[in-house]
Amino acid sequence: MKIKIKIKKQDTKQLTKDLMIVALIVNALALVLHLVLNLFTGPLLIPILTSNFIFILLPIMYLAEEAKKNKEARNR
């Protein structure tokens, strides 16, 4: 038995936006946890920041682009 789910394009965009927000929160919490744990172990902070920063930056870039598109659409 196959179940077909119809998803509107607007729903897909909202779902993607929500998932990016969740990804941003989870990655920010992971970075904080990583930094706290490494305070006790003592490795360098630069590799930690650079390796985790990209995972925080990507959702921010997506959300900023989406906000820019929405603003342009409202101005038309």
Rank of each mutant, 00 (worst) to 15 (best):
residue 23 A to N: 08
residue 46 I to D: 13
residue 32 V to I: 12
residue 35 L to A: 11
residue 24 L to G: 09
residue 57 L to S: 09
residue 2 K to L: 10
residue 44 L to A: 15
residue 17 K to P: 04
residue 33 L to H: 01
residue 4 K to S: 10
residue 32 V to C: 10
residue 50 T to Y: 07
residue 52 N to C: 05
residue 46 I to N: 06
residue 60 I to R: 02
residue 48 I to H: 07
residue 57 L to Q: 13
residue 40 F to T: 08
residue 53 F to P: 13
residue 62 Y to G: 04
residue 54 I to T: 05
residue 1 M to N: 13
residue 17 K to V: 07
residue 39 L to D: 01
residue 23 A to G: 04
residue 50 T to W: 06
residue 36 V to A: 15
residue 10 Q to S: 08
residue 30 A to F: 07
residue 30 A to H: 08
residue 45 L to M: 06
residue 70 N to T: 14
residue 49 L to C: 03
residue 67 A to S: 11
residue 41 T to V: 05
residue 55 F to H: 04
residue 69 K to W: 07
residue 39 L to E: 01
residue 53 F to D: 14
residue 72 E to V: 15
residue 75 N to W: 13
residue 24 L to P: 02
residue 1 M to R: 09
residue 39 L to I: 02
residue 74 R to A: 10
residue 38 N to V: 00
residue 36 V to G: 03
residue 65 E to H: 13
residue 48 I to R: 00
residue 3 I to K: 14
residue 4 K to Q: 12
residue 24 L to W: 08
residue 53 F to K: 15
residue 37 L to M: 11
residue 18 D to H: 07
residue 54 I to F: 06
residue 68 K to W: 07
residue 36 V to T: 05
residue 19 L to A: 12
residue 13 K to E: 12
residue 50 T to C: 02
residue 44 L to E: 04
residue 37 L to P: 03
residue 21 I to F: 13
residue 3 I to D: 14
residue 13 K to C: 09
residue 29 L to P: 09
residue 68 K to G: 05
residue 44 L to I: 02
residue 58 L to F: 14
residue 32 V to R: 08
residue 46 I to S: 04
residue 67 A to F: 08
residue 21 I to H: 09
residue 27 N to W: 08
residue 2 K to Q: 12
residue 36 V to P: 00
residue 33 L to V: 03
residue 59 P to L: 00
residue 43 P to L: 01
residue 6 K to G: 06
residue 25 I to T: 02
residue 43 P to Q: 06
residue 52 N to M: 14
residue 3 I to M: 10
residue 35 L to M: 01
residue 42 G to E: 04
residue 9 K to A: 15
residue 34 H to L: 09
residue 69 K to V: 07
residue 14 Q to D: 14
residue 34 H to M: 12
residue 39 L to T: 00
residue 63 L to I: 14
residue 37 L to T: 03
residue 76 R to D: 07
residue 30 A to C: 11
residue 32 V to D: 06
residue 6 K to R: 15
residue 50 T to S: 01
residue 21 I to W: 03
residue 3 I to H: 03
residue 42 G to K: 02
residue 30 A to I: 12
residue 72 E to H: 15
residue 6 K to A: 11
residue 29 L to A: 15
residue 39 L to A: 00
residue 41 T to L: 00
residue 34 H to W: 00
residue 42 G to Q: 03
residue 14 Q to F: 04
residue 71 K to V: 08
residue 59 P to C: 05
residue 10 Q to P: 05
residue 57 L to A: 14
residue 11 D to C: 04
residue 5 I to C: 06
residue 60 I to S: 00
residue 59 P to S: 05
residue 26 V to K: 00
residue 4 K to L: 08
residue 65 E to K: 11
residue 31 L to Q: 02
residue 16 T to H: 09
residue 11 D to I: 05
